[in-house]
Each structure stands twice: as structure tokens, then as C-alpha cells.
Design a protein around this nucleic acid. Structure first.
Lengths: 127, 127
DNA sequence: CAGCATCCTTCGTGATACTG
DNA sequence: CAGTATCACGAAGGATGCTG
């Protein structure tokens, strides 16, 4: 399978879109957060905290702040006591969902094969 | 946008496909390596080394070993002197390319907006 | 409720030197 | 040519305690 549309990655140093996309969503929690928001429309901080398994409060904060800075998530603050904050995907954030789904589906289909392959791989993998 | 097909992520701990896929291709060089191989069909070690900008010899080795263990890349060794090793995508590896393309296209379209958004974001982002 | 501030550990990555 | 081995560092992530 030859695709000549990716040559740009070779010459470009840091402009390569693949590097960009990894820098944004390649971390441990961003994709999961986006997916949860796309699934529930609007969520409060603690709701997200419960939905995303094992995420720490700190990482949820950092992840949301980054997604907000990137324009993928919008944050609505209600100046009450106790405070109430709602998170939603922006249009830009929504546009990320279909590509994510494609990956998600691939993972679902391919993970069994990958795991099997790793089982039968004799040599130790240095990582 | 509501998609009720992702609920599995909530309960599952480490079985979530999104976590899996990130663990496999979310690192710094795997996606780039897969893309280079899909673009050139067959490549030798040093050819990959030159094509993937700024990757160290060590990380290329580690990345290739991992991809091989996962069954995404196949490695053909010619017992000569000097040695010659050829890397190719397996069928499983090829199947990863279309999903990657989808993400790639999204990145191309959305990166300007994301960068602009980050520019105008007043507060410092903790990372 | 929704965070922020620290501290601390681990992992990924890079630099360098050496080998069959 | 195609790696391996070792060292070292910085950043990501986790744990805990505090606040408006």
C-alpha cells in the first residue's frame, strides 16, 4: 500500500501533523476525557472523576485545562456556593470524535491479535 | 452528540480499548514508523533512521522491536556481512493505516484552530 | 464542590561508546 | 550495517494535604 500523501512528514521537523496530534491527545487521559464528554454531552467535574476510572484529581484538572486551552472543551462556571462547573465539547472537540471512533474500532478488532502476538514473542522487549 | 456505544470504558479498568491503543501507538515514534513503512513498503534500518527525523538509533530499535512483538511489523534478516535487515508492515500493521489517516487528516484541518486557541488562552497551562 | 500546591517516584528518551 | 550496553536526565504521573 503506497500513499504518497505523507511525504511531508519527512522534511518537516516539528510541523508533522502526526507529532502534533500525539502531543495533544497522545497523553494518558485526553482521549478518554473527550470520549466521555461526547457520550454524556455535559458533565461536572466530579461526574468526570467518577466516569474516568482511576484518574487522579490532579490529572483530571490538568487534562481539562489543556483541552480547554486547545479549544476542544468549554468550561461553564456557576458562581455559587458550593461551586458548580460544567464541561462540554466544543464544535472542534466534537470533530475529534469520529477519528477517535475509527481508532477505537480498530483497537477493538485488533487487540486480540496483538495480545496473541505478544504472547508468542520469544525475546524480551526492551520496554 | 450521544453515542451509547462507549459505555464499556466506564466499568472496565485496563481493558478499555482506548487505553490499549494509546499504550501501543501513543508513544513518540510508533505512529511515525508505521506511516513511513506504509509509504515505502519495505525499508532497511538505516533508511528508516534517515526518514524519521531526529529519532535516535536506540529509540528506533526499541520502537521496531515493540512493533514486531505486537505483530504490526515483520522483520526479515539476511545473514550477510555486512548485515541487511528489512522491515515491512504486516497485514495487521496495514490495517492500522486507515485509522491513522483519519487522525492525520483531522490534525491537518484542526491544528490551526488549536494553535490559535492556545495563543489566546490567557492563563498558564500547567504542563 | 472543584480545585491548587508540593513532594516524590517512575518511565520514556537521549547521549555516548562499543560490537558481530 | 545493524544493532547492544550503560549512564543520565527531564517530564509525566501519582499521593497527599489544604482552600474558597
Amino acid at each position: 500500500m503506497k500513499k504518497e500523501n505523507l511525504k511531508k512528514c519527512e522534511g518537516d521537523r516539528d510541523d508533522c501533523p502526526i507529532k502534533d496530534v500525539l502531543a495533544r491527545i497522545g497523553d494518558k487521559w485526553s482521549m478518554l476525557t473527550v470520549i466521555m464528554l461526547s457520550d454524556h454531552d455535559t458533565l461536572r467535574f466530579n461526574e468526570l472523576h467518577q466516569l474516568i476510572d482511576n484518574i487522579s484529581q490532579k490529572m483530571l484538572t490538568v487534562t481539562l485545562k489543556t483541552l480547554e486551552a486547545d479549544g476542544l472543551v468549554s468550561r461553564k462556571m456557576y458562581p455559587q456556593i458550593p461551586p458548580k462547573v460544567e464541561y462540554t465539547l466544543t464544535a472542534l472537540g466534537e470533530s475529534l470524535v469520529p477519528p477517535l471512533m475509527t481508532l477505537y474500532d480498530w483497537a477493538n478488532k485488533s487487540m486480540p491479535a496483538i495480545k496473541a502476538s505478544r504472547e508468542h514473542y520469544g525475546q524480551p522487549v526492551p520496554r
